[in-house]
Simulated scan of single mutants.
Amino acid sequence: MIRPELLQWKEATDRLLALPVTNDETQREAMIASVESILDEREQLQPRIQPPFSADEEAYGKELVAREPKVAAKLENYLTAIRKDLSASQTKKDSVRSYVNPYSKVARDGTFYDTKQ
């Protein structure tokens, strides 16, 4: 007999692994909310999974532990996608700013530039 907490943990892990990594900005907020809700659910289940475990639960737990590197890799993919979008957004802001004011980054070292040529 396997405890319901372990079954719920496996279900939450499966849902987390099934979520797609989207590059679409309109779906990103929904993706982040889904990931956060699943991680919160797993966090609430974790304290309720306490020893002693039966032999069936031990085998089931080893299967769940084997899935955790996949979960970590998936979360790293989410983080990488979000960081890439933040970097692209910052680059876009910088290029717009330099287009609006092209002389903002010119070093003003006190030299005189003759503008009457």
Rank of each mutant, 00 (worst) to 15 (best):
A59R: 15
I32S: 06
T26W: 02
G61K: 02
Q27N: 15
D40A: 06
P20G: 02
L39N: 10
E29N: 14
D56R: 15
R42N: 04
A33P: 01
A33V: 01
E29T: 11
A33H: 03
Q46D: 14
Q46T: 15
T26N: 01
L17Q: 09
E43F: 08
S37K: 02
E41S: 08
Q46H: 08
S37A: 04
E25Q: 09
M31D: 12
R42C: 06
Q46F: 11
Y60R: 12
Q27I: 03
P52K: 06
S34W: 07
A59K: 15
E25D: 05
E36R: 00
T26M: 03
A59P: 03
A55E: 15
S37E: 10
Q44H: 10
S34P: 04
Q50C: 06
P51T: 11
A33S: 07
E57G: 11
P51E: 13
E57W: 12
A55G: 09
E57A: 11
Y60I: 13
E43R: 12
P51Q: 11
I49K: 08
Q50I: 14
T22V: 10
E43Q: 12
A30G: 14
N23E: 13
P52N: 05
V21Y: 00
S54K: 10
I38T: 08
A18G: 01
E58P: 11
E29S: 09
Q50T: 15
E41M: 00
T26H: 08
S54Y: 03
A30P: 05
Q27E: 11
V21Q: 01
Q44F: 11
T26Q: 10
L39F: 04
P51K: 09
P20L: 11
T22C: 08
V35S: 06
D40L: 04
E41F: 01
E36C: 01
Q50L: 05
Q44N: 04
F53S: 13
Y60T: 07
E29I: 08
L17C: 04
T22H: 01
E43C: 12
A30N: 12
E58G: 09
K62L: 15
L19Y: 07
N23R: 02
R28K: 11
E43A: 15
D24I: 04
Q46C: 14
A33N: 04
T26A: 07
D40H: 02
V35W: 00
I49P: 04
R28W: 04
S37P: 01
A55W: 01
Y60F: 15
E43D: 12
E57I: 14
P47C: 06
L17S: 07
E41A: 02
I38D: 02
I49A: 09
P20C: 08
T22S: 14
M31R: 07
L39C: 05
S34K: 05
A18I: 06
L17V: 09
I38C: 02
R48H: 10
M31F: 01
F53Y: 15
S37V: 00
M31Q: 10
N23C: 00
A55H: 11
A33C: 00
A30E: 13
